[in-house]
Deep mutational scan, measured.
Amino acid sequence: SLEGTEKASWLGEQPQFWSKTQVLDWISYQVEKNKYDASAIDFSRCDMDGATLCNCALEELRLVFGPLGDQLHAQLRDLTSS
């Protein structure tokens, strides 16, 4: 749920159509929501749009996002199937 936050830029759009900015917004949101240590994320490797993100295998997401990769992968699957 997104109570208390302004409507996120990526909400209501299919992930494969996200811009690079929307991807970063979504990642930041997941980091906050999961109380994850953002210093463990290599943000220089997050410079990708939604289509690229959706094409990432779980292993790739783990490389870039560490333990949060599993969470991101699961969330993406939910978003693309809805």
Score class of each variant (00 low, 15 high):
50 G>L: 00
21 T>Q: 15
22 Q>M: 10
49 D>Q: 02
69 G>R: 01
1 S>K: 14
16 Q>Y: 03
8 A>G: 12
68 L>R: 02
11 L>R: 07
41 I>F: 05
72 L>V: 13
6 E>P: 09
53 L>Y: 01
65 F>Y: 05
35 K>I: 03
63 L>H: 03
64 V>Q: 10
66 G>D: 01
76 L>R: 01
11 L>Y: 05
26 W>S: 00
55 N>M: 10
14 Q>S: 14
44 S>G: 11
42 D>N: 09
76 L>Y: 00
26 W>Q: 01
24 L>F: 15
16 Q>E: 13
76 L>M: 12
76 L>W: 02
35 K>V: 09
75 Q>T: 15
17 F>K: 15
71 Q>E: 12
65 F>E: 00
8 A>P: 10
26 W>P: 01
36 Y>E: 15
77 R>Y: 01
79 L>N: 06
40 A>C: 09
36 Y>D: 07
60 E>P: 01
80 T>A: 03
82 S>N: 15
52 T>V: 09
66 G>E: 01
56 C>P: 00
21 T>P: 13
34 N>V: 08
22 Q>E: 11
41 I>E: 14
78 D>N: 14
68 L>T: 06
28 S>G: 13
14 Q>H: 04
40 A>G: 14
57 A>W: 02
60 E>G: 08
22 Q>L: 03
51 A>V: 11
66 G>T: 00
31 V>S: 10
10 W>Q: 03
23 V>F: 01
23 V>S: 03
52 T>K: 09
52 T>S: 12
54 C>T: 12
68 L>D: 02
49 D>K: 08
52 T>N: 12
28 S>C: 14
30 Q>C: 10
3 E>S: 11
28 S>N: 08
37 D>G: 07
15 P>L: 03
56 C>M: 06
25 D>E: 13
1 S>A: 15
51 A>Q: 15
67 P>N: 02
28 S>R: 13
9 S>Y: 04
20 K>M: 05
65 F>Q: 00
48 M>A: 02
74 A>S: 14
22 Q>T: 11
33 K>P: 02
25 D>K: 03
77 R>W: 04
13 E>S: 13
74 A>W: 12
78 D>P: 04
32 E>H: 12
41 I>V: 06
29 Y>V: 06
40 A>V: 14
81 S>I: 13
67 P>A: 13
14 Q>P: 08
46 C>D: 02
35 K>W: 09
66 G>S: 00
33 K>Y: 09
8 A>T: 15
77 R>I: 15
48 M>V: 05
1 S>I: 02
5 T>Y: 03
54 C>S: 08
69 G>W: 02
6 E>N: 11
80 T>L: 14
72 L>P: 00
51 A>R: 13
8 A>R: 14
3 E>N: 15
47 D>S: 13
3 E>M: 14
35 K>Y: 12
38 A>Y: 13
21 T>G: 10
60 E>C: 05
73 H>R: 07
30 Q>D: 00
62 R>V: 09
58 L>R: 11
59 E>S: 12
77 R>K: 03
53 L>F: 08
68 L>K: 04
58 L>N: 06
23 V>L: 03
60 E>F: 07
46 C>M: 15
76 L>A: 01
64 V>D: 11
78 D>F: 10
54 C>Y: 04
6 E>Q: 13
56 C>S: 12
5 T>K: 05
21 T>N: 14
45 R>I: 06
25 D>N: 06
67 P>K: 07
65 F>S: 01
16 Q>R: 10
42 D>Y: 03
9 S>G: 07
9 S>C: 12
22 Q>R: 02
10 W>L: 04
49 D>E: 10
63 L>P: 03
10 W>K: 03
22 Q>G: 02
49 D>H: 02
61 L>R: 01
67 P>G: 11
36 Y>I: 05
46 C>K: 05
26 W>A: 00
81 S>G: 11
36 Y>R: 08
24 L>I: 09
7 K>Y: 12
79 L>K: 05
11 L>M: 13
5 T>G: 06
15 P>M: 05
10 W>E: 03
55 N>A: 12
53 L>R: 00
57 A>Y: 07
56 C>A: 13
42 D>C: 02
29 Y>E: 12
40 A>N: 06
3 E>T: 08
14 Q>F: 11
55 N>H: 03
71 Q>A: 15
57 A>L: 10
75 Q>V: 07
50 G>V: 00
12 G>R: 09
26 W>R: 01
22 Q>C: 04
44 S>A: 09
13 E>D: 06
38 A>E: 12
65 F>M: 03
67 P>W: 08
64 V>E: 12
36 Y>G: 10
71 Q>I: 14
35 K>R: 13
34 N>Y: 02
39 S>C: 06
11 L>E: 14
11 L>P: 13
2 L>N: 15
26 W>F: 01
7 K>Q: 10
46 C>T: 09
28 S>Y: 11
57 A>F: 02
58 L>S: 11
48 M>G: 00
22 Q>H: 03
13 E>I: 10
20 K>W: 02
79 L>D: 07
2 L>I: 15
82 S>Q: 14
29 Y>R: 06
69 G>T: 11
43 F>T: 06
47 D>H: 14
77 R>N: 14
5 T>R: 14
77 R>L: 09
27 I>G: 00
69 G>Q: 01
53 L>P: 01
67 P>E: 13
46 C>R: 04
43 F>L: 13
29 Y>P: 00
51 A>Y: 10
3 E>Y: 04
14 Q>K: 09
45 R>W: 12
63 L>E: 09
78 D>A: 08
71 Q>G: 07
37 D>F: 04
5 T>V: 07
18 W>P: 00
33 K>F: 05
13 E>R: 10
45 R>G: 09
4 G>Q: 04
3 E>P: 13
38 A>T: 10
38 A>C: 15
77 R>A: 13
8 A>I: 04
48 M>S: 01
55 N>K: 14
59 E>K: 04
64 V>F: 03
3 E>V: 09
44 S>M: 10
37 D>Y: 05
78 D>H: 10
52 T>H: 06
2 L>A: 11
14 Q>A: 08
17 F>T: 07
63 L>N: 09
15 P>A: 03
63 L>K: 15
2 L>P: 04
57 A>N: 15
44 S>Y: 07
36 Y>A: 11
54 C>A: 10
2 L>K: 01
53 L>K: 01
16 Q>D: 10
73 H>S: 10
5 T>L: 14
24 L>T: 09
41 I>S: 04
15 P>T: 02
35 K>H: 11
22 Q>K: 03
82 S>L: 09
70 D>K: 15
1 S>W: 04
28 S>T: 08
31 V>D: 01
25 D>M: 02
51 A>P: 12
49 D>I: 03
49 D>A: 04
71 Q>H: 07
73 H>F: 06
63 L>D: 13
10 W>H: 04
11 L>H: 06
56 C>W: 08
5 T>Q: 06
62 R>F: 03
16 Q>K: 15
79 L>S: 10
18 W>R: 00
36 Y>K: 05
64 V>L: 09
35 K>C: 11
63 L>S: 08
5 T>S: 14
27 I>F: 04
28 S>V: 12
42 D>P: 03
19 S>P: 00
79 L>P: 08
52 T>P: 00
40 A>R: 14
59 E>W: 05
35 K>E: 09
77 R>P: 01
68 L>V: 12
10 W>A: 02
72 L>C: 02
46 C>Q: 05
42 D>I: 04
73 H>A: 07
59 E>H: 15
28 S>Q: 13
1 S>Y: 06
52 T>W: 10
13 E>L: 06
48 M>P: 00
13 E>V: 12
2 L>T: 06
70 D>Q: 06
51 A>K: 13
72 L>I: 07
61 L>I: 03
15 P>Q: 01
39 S>W: 08
27 I>Y: 02
58 L>W: 05
13 E>M: 15
68 L>Y: 10
49 D>C: 00
37 D>A: 09
31 V>C: 08
61 L>W: 06
73 H>L: 07
56 C>E: 04
12 G>W: 15
62 R>S: 10
71 Q>T: 13
65 F>A: 05
32 E>C: 03
78 D>K: 09
71 Q>W: 07
17 F>E: 14
50 G>T: 01
66 G>V: 00
56 C>H: 04
10 W>V: 05
38 A>D: 06
31 V>Y: 03
